[in-house]
């Protein structure tokens, strides 16, 4: 951003999936300004009816993701000078999801698929059992650790063209969590996870385009996790364990 540039030219998606329009705003430029700062400025000083979502503002909660100039990003940690050096911004709700209003995407399909992939903990013990020791240097544990920093922001889901082309595809985030649990010695759902991720919308839909890994703000690699699921489901299939 040049010093002379005092305002940003911001175009914002308004409305829902059924009817959308684009509004333009002039927003004062500041040093160290984030995309979320810009959206908040519009809502506070230009149009209080603008709907959007955020919570932590520090890249922990995963609620602020939007399309910024066509790229899915966590807006609270995306600096304007990095993504719009010319001061022009197009801000839209996350791709591949229905829109509730303006910049707030409907996350229901995303989390429904999370459940459909069996990406939830299947306890192997009860609270009455002694606490199990976990060896952090164990190779399987290390593989599980690679995925635990996922903040459920749905940026990978918005980035993926396989999701765009196949509404049934479970998507990178849900599959990565399924892979994490498959490698977690405390999880007891191995067979149900393998069954869930090898169905019609499962891991074998993935074409390894790698947009999930490219845009994940935490630099995780769902493509690697999905490749792991492809391997494990194939192995289990050839061993005849799959009861399909």
């Amino acid at each position: 951003m040049t010093a002379a540039q005092e305002t940003l030219d911001v175009t914002v998606h308004r409305g829902t999936t059924r009817g959308a329009r684009y509004d333009r705003f002039e927003v004062p430029a500041h040093e160290s300004q984030t995309v979320l700062d810009v959206v908040s400025w519009i809502q506070q000083f230009a149009d209080p009816t603008l709907s959007y979502r955020f919570a932590c503002r520090v890249g922990m909660c995963g609620s602020c993701a939007m399309m910024v100039n066509g790229t899915p990003r966590w807006t609270c940690r995306t600096h304007i000078k990095k993504v719009a050096p010319d001061g022009k911004l197009l801000i839209e709700p996350l791709r591949n999801l229905p829109v509730i209003k303006d910049l707030a995407a409907d996350m229901d399909p995303f989390f429904d698929k999370w459940t459909a992939a069996e990406a939830q903990h299947h306890p192997s013990q009860t609270r009455h059992d002694p606490i199990e020791a976990i060896d952090p240097t164990d190779a399987t544990r290390a593989e599980a650790d690679l995925g635990v920093e996922c903040i459920n922001c749905a940026i990978c889901y918005a980035a993926c063209d396989t999701v765009a082309g196949n509404p049934d595809y479970l998507g990178p985030a849900a599959l990565q969590r399924a892979w994490t649990l498959l490698n977690d010695s405390r999880d007891d759902g191995r067979q149900s996870i393998l069954d869930a991720v090898s169905g019609t919308g499962g891991c074998h839909n993935c074409h390894s385009m790698g947009s999930c890994a490219q845009y994940c703000p935490n630099e995780l690699n769902p493509m690697r996790a999905i490749a792991g699921l492809k391997r494990e489901t194939a192995k289990s299939f050839f061993k005849g364990k799959r009861n399909a």
Binding site: P72, L90, E92, D161, G210, S211
Partner: peptide, 12 residues
């Protein structure tokens, strides 16, 4: 909606 940024090697 603007076409999403896809210009990275594995997408090509």
């Amino acid at each position: 909606m603007k076409a999403p940024a896809r210009s990275h090697p594995l997408w090509f």
